[in-house]
Amino acid sequence: MPKIIKDIESKIFSTSMDLFLKKGYKAVDMKMIAKECGIAVGTLYNYYPNKKELYISILKESWNDTFIKLDSVLESSLLPKEKANEVINILYSDIENRQGIGKELRNDNIKDLSNDKRVTEFKETLIKKIELSISKLEKKEEFKEDKNIDMKISEIILMSIIVIIKSHKNEKVKNIKILNKTLEAFLV
Rank of each mutant, 00 (worst) to 15 (best):
N109R: 13
K117W: 03
I176E: 01
V173R: 10
K51F: 04
E141T: 09
I90Y: 04
A40P: 00
E104M: 00
Y92S: 03
M1P: 00
S167W: 03
Y55N: 02
D7F: 06
D71C: 07
K177E: 14
A40E: 08
E131Y: 08
I58V: 13
S77I: 09
P2K: 15
I134Q: 02
L132I: 14
S167H: 07
L132K: 15
C37L: 01
S76E: 04
K6W: 06
Y47L: 02
S62E: 12
I178F: 11
V87P: 01
Y48T: 07
L132C: 12
K128I: 06
I153P: 01
D146V: 05
I178S: 13
I58W: 07
I5K: 13
N170F: 11
V188R: 14
T120F: 12
S72H: 08
S114L: 00
K152G: 09
Y47A: 01
L21E: 08
N175A: 01
K166N: 07
I58D: 05
E86L: 13
L132M: 14
I8F: 04
E131D: 12
S154G: 12
A40I: 01
D150E: 13
T43V: 14
L158T: 11
I134D: 00
K123Q: 07
E138T: 15
N170C: 07
S135V: 00
I161H: 05
K177Q: 13
E82K: 12
K136A: 14
K69F: 06
K26C: 04
A27H: 05
F13S: 00
K31F: 09
I162G: 01
E104W: 00
M30N: 12
L44V: 05
I39A: 02
R98P: 01
S160K: 03
D108P: 14
W63T: 15
K147S: 09
L59Q: 14
L126G: 07
N97G: 07
V87A: 05
L113Q: 08
E61W: 00
L179F: 10
D112S: 08
K139H: 03
K11W: 01
I178T: 11
E96W: 12
K111R: 13
E145N: 12
V173A: 14
